[in-house]
Each structure stands twice: as structure tokens, then as C-alpha cells.
Design a binder for these strands. Sequence first.
DNA 1: CTGGGTGCAAAGTATTTGCATGAAC
DNA 2: GTTCATGCAAATACTTTGCACCCAG
Lengths: 133, 133
Amino acid sequence: MINSSVLLKEYDLKVTPQRVAIVEELYKHGHMNIDDLYKNLLKKFPSISLATIYKNVNAMVEKIFLNEVKIPETKSVYELAKEDHLHLVCSSCGKIEDIVLDTSSLEKSLSTLSDFKVENTEVVFSGICKNCQ
Amino acid sequence: MINSSVLLKEYDLKVTPQRVAIVEELYKHGHMNIDDLYKNLLKKFPSISLATIYKNVNAMVEKIFLNEVKIPETKSVYELAKEDHLHLVCSSCGKIEDIVLDTSSLEKSLSTLSDFKVENTEVVFSGICKNCQ
DNA sequence: CTGGGTGCAAAGTATTTGCATGAAC
DNA sequence: GTTCATGCAAATACTTTGCACCCAG
């Protein structure tokens, strides 16, 4: 399990039950969009508002401990920041998985063709996951 | 120059001046978001409506001759479909460039770690373009 | 106590839809 | 002539903001 309170404090955010729940949901599910977060949190907090979700998610993204992941043909999802990784999106069931792969050779071949100075590399593979094959 | 009418006909879309202009703008600029498209087309069609832009862009995306490109921290942009390529996004000036790079070695190393069957690979490099360095 | 978070309602922005008119074929 | 695109207005969806009240520190 994750220690949400410690995490929130580290990033100078007050520890509230709603925030703890957001972090725990994301820890549990890996990736969620705003709507799914809202629907799940409603079970625990019947009167939570979408505004609270948006405000908190935005605050956490600004503090850089959440990332927004933009995926072709779908709504953005959010994930807890962690080691750099790429994303696998199943076009059949929609599931999103993480995978750690070294992209440095891709960046190296880029550098032979262009003077662009890369700071970040985002990769999303779409396809069919193991279960759906 | 591009022959927009032929392109539209190939994809079973009626040739209208508005559609031709959308294709030409995208050909000229490479990547544009909805707002920029709208602002530019207003010059040529002072009474064009945003609804027309949305309907046409969506139709062209469905016919697979436009692609939506999702980019971290920015609005989506659209581009004419063409040879597979990756994107370079300058975090200083916002310019978006295309680059053709082979991603097969990345896909190969993915296949050694996972049973995911890749159908498409999207890559967005963020960083600083030549001009802004 | 004090600052900041919460939930509500309202405002703002983005996108889609229905429909009458007009243009493409 | 028939089909479908256009532009407008309205509807829907998505996101942010202001504010009174309340909780975390």
C-alpha cells in the first residue's frame, strides 16, 4: 500500500480524506479519467463534487506528482508519477498498461537527423493486449 | 501544391469551398488546432461557422485522411495523413515538426517483455527546437 | 485561530445537434 | 431533382470560478 498522507505532505498539500482517496484510487487502478475517478469516489463520499476532483487533480498535476496521459481516441487519464515508462493501450478492452523500455536509441537516431534537443519522450503503443488476443 | 478536390472525392466527400480550404490550410501549416483553423478560414469565409469546421474535421478524421495528434500540455492538432512519422514539439515556441524514424527496434524490445500485439506507435518528443536553442 | 479545502451554483469554454436554406452532383 | 453541406441557434459536455461554510494544522 501507499502512504498517501506522507505523499501529500511532501508536496505541500493539506491531507484531506478526499485527496487521500484520489491518491489511493489512482494507486489501485493505475490510470483513471476524471469521470471514473468521480464515479468511484462518489461511493465513499456521496456528496463529493466534480469541482473538488478537478481542483485536486489540477493541483497534483502542478505539483508534479500526477501526470496527465493523452491517448489517441480517448479521454486523458491520470497516473501517479513514477519511473519513466511507456504506455500500452488495448484497442479492444481499453486497458492501459505501463512498460519500462529504453528509448535512448530512438533519441540517438533522432539526434543524427535533427538539432532538436529532446527533454521528454512520450510513447503510446496501441494494439491488442494479451487477454484480448 | 495539393489537389484537394481529388483528395476529397477519393474519400467520398463532396467538394465544397470550405472543405477545400480546410485541406489547403492543413497542407500549408502542417498542424493546426480547431481554433487556428477557424480563425484562418474566417478570413476567406467571413460567415463560416465553428460547427462547419467541427463537422468537416470529424468527417475527415473518420475517413482516415486527417489524424488527430494529442500532445502533452496542449490542445490537439490535426494533420493530413501521410507516411508514418513522429512529432517534435518545441516547449519554447510551440512549433511542431514531423520526423521519420524507424520504431521497429523499440517494438521488438517491447515484444520480448510483453505479449501485447502492437498495431500503432505514437511518439511525441518534447524539447527545444533548433531555432529556440 | 487561520488558511486552505469542500460542495454548491453559476459562469465559461468546447463540442455536438437540429433544422431551414442553398450548393454539389 | 436529390442528396448532402452550410450556418445559425440551441443543446450538451467539459472545466473553472466564486463564495459560504467547515476542517486540517
